[in-house]
Amino acid sequence: TDCSIVSFLARLGCSSCLDYFTTQGLTTIYQIEHYSMDDLASLKIPEQFRHAIWKGILDHRQLHEF
Protein backbone atom coordinates (compact mmCIF):
# COMPACT_ATOMS: atom_id res chain seq x y z
CA THR A 1 0.00 0.00 0.00
CA ASP A 2 0.96 3.62 -0.47
CA CYS A 3 2.81 4.89 2.60
CA SER A 4 2.89 8.54 1.60
CA ILE A 5 1.45 11.17 3.89
CA VAL A 6 -0.46 12.48 0.84
CA SER A 7 -2.54 9.32 0.56
CA PHE A 8 -2.71 8.84 4.34
CA LEU A 9 -4.30 12.29 4.75
CA ALA A 10 -6.54 11.75 1.72
CA ARG A 11 -7.95 8.54 3.27
CA LEU A 12 -8.70 10.47 6.46
CA GLY A 13 -10.31 13.39 4.63
CA CYS A 14 -7.54 15.66 5.91
CA SER A 15 -5.77 16.55 2.65
CA SER A 16 -5.92 20.23 3.57
CA CYS A 17 -3.37 19.50 6.32
CA LEU A 18 -0.66 18.30 3.93
CA ASP A 19 1.39 21.50 4.06
CA TYR A 20 1.80 21.20 7.83
CA PHE A 21 3.73 17.99 7.21
CA THR A 22 5.60 18.78 4.01
CA THR A 23 7.03 22.04 5.36
CA GLN A 24 8.68 19.89 8.07
CA GLY A 25 10.06 17.50 5.45
CA LEU A 26 7.62 14.76 6.44
CA THR A 27 6.56 12.66 3.46
CA THR A 28 5.84 9.12 4.67
CA ILE A 29 3.63 7.66 7.36
CA TYR A 30 6.69 5.99 8.89
CA GLN A 31 8.09 9.40 9.84
CA ILE A 32 5.02 10.20 11.94
CA GLU A 33 3.84 6.79 13.16
CA HIS A 34 5.15 7.42 16.68
CA TYR A 35 3.88 11.00 16.89
CA SER A 36 1.82 11.96 19.92
CA MET A 37 -1.11 14.35 20.07
CA ASP A 38 1.39 16.99 21.29
CA ASP A 39 3.59 16.41 18.25
CA LEU A 40 0.60 17.03 15.99
CA ALA A 41 -0.21 20.17 17.95
CA SER A 42 3.36 21.39 17.55
CA LEU A 43 2.96 21.06 13.76
CA LYS A 44 0.14 23.64 14.17
CA ILE A 45 -2.45 21.27 12.77
CA PRO A 46 -5.95 22.67 13.38
CA GLU A 47 -7.71 20.92 16.24
CA GLN A 48 -10.64 19.68 14.15
CA PHE A 49 -8.22 17.63 12.02
CA ARG A 50 -5.81 16.65 14.78
CA HIS A 51 -8.08 13.97 16.27
CA ALA A 52 -8.74 12.33 12.91
CA ILE A 53 -5.03 12.27 12.08
CA TRP A 54 -4.17 10.93 15.55
CA LYS A 55 -6.74 8.15 15.14
CA GLY A 56 -5.31 7.37 11.72
CA ILE A 57 -1.82 7.09 13.22
CA LEU A 58 -3.10 4.73 15.94
CA ASP A 59 -4.87 2.59 13.34
CA HIS A 60 -1.69 2.48 11.27
CA ARG A 61 0.34 1.36 14.31
CA GLN A 62 -2.07 -1.48 15.05
CA LEU A 63 -1.84 -2.72 11.47
CA HIS A 64 1.95 -2.82 11.67
CA GLU A 65 2.51 -4.32 15.12
CA PHE A 66 3.78 -7.86 14.88
Rank of each mutant, 00 (worst) to 15 (best):
Q48A: 12
H64C: 09
D38G: 12
L18D: 07
T28L: 07
Q48S: 11
S7K: 12
L26T: 03
D38F: 08
K55D: 08
A10R: 08
L63C: 14
L40E: 00
Q31Y: 01
C3E: 10
L43G: 01
H60F: 14
C3G: 08
S42G: 15
S15L: 09
D38C: 07
F8A: 02
I57K: 02
S15R: 09
S42Y: 08
A52T: 11
E47R: 09
I57P: 00
F8L: 09
S4W: 04
G13P: 00
I5L: 14
L63S: 15
I45M: 05
I5A: 00
P46W: 00
S16W: 04
S7W: 05
E33I: 05
L43W: 03
H64D: 12
D39N: 07
L9H: 00
A10E: 14
R11G: 08
M37F: 14
T27A: 06
W54L: 15
I32Y: 00
L43V: 05
L18R: 08
S42F: 14
Y20C: 07
D59P: 04
Y30H: 15
T28A: 08
V6S: 15
G25I: 00
H34V: 03
Q24P: 04
R11D: 07
L58K: 14
F21R: 00
A52E: 12
G25A: 06
D19H: 15
A41M: 07
I57D: 00
I32V: 11
C3R: 09
C17T: 07
F21A: 00
R11T: 12
L12I: 15
S4Y: 04
C14Q: 04
F8M: 11
E33G: 08
I5E: 00
H64K: 13
L9Q: 00
S16R: 07
Q62R: 15
I29Q: 03
F66H: 15
R61H: 06
F8Y: 03
E47F: 05
E47I: 10
Q31T: 03
S42K: 14
L26P: 02
D2G: 06
D38I: 08
Q48M: 12
E65D: 15
S15F: 05
I5M: 12
L43F: 04
F66C: 15
M37L: 13
F21N: 00
S36D: 11
L40F: 10
I45T: 02
C3M: 14
D38K: 11
A41D: 11
L40C: 02
D2L: 03
K55N: 11
L18F: 04
S4V: 02
I32Q: 00
C17L: 07
A10K: 07
H60Q: 12
K55F: 04
I45N: 00
E47W: 07
L58H: 11
G56S: 05
T1A: 08
H64A: 14
D19M: 07
C14Y: 08
L58D: 13
S36W: 02
Q48F: 06
L58Q: 14
F49R: 06
D38V: 15
A10N: 05
D19V: 07
S42R: 15
C17P: 01
F8I: 03
T1F: 11
F8N: 01
Q62S: 12
S36R: 08
T22P: 01
C14S: 05
G25H: 06
T22Q: 12
I57V: 07
G25C: 05
C3A: 06
T23C: 11
Q62L: 10
D59K: 09
L58E: 13
H34S: 14
G25R: 06
S36G: 12
L63F: 06
Y35W: 14
E65F: 05
D39I: 02
R11V: 04
S36N: 15
I57S: 02
H51M: 14
I53P: 00
T22Y: 04
D59C: 09
I5K: 00
H34K: 13
F8Q: 01
I32S: 00
Y35F: 13
K55W: 04
H51F: 09
T1P: 02
H64E: 15
L63Q: 13
D19W: 09
C17I: 05
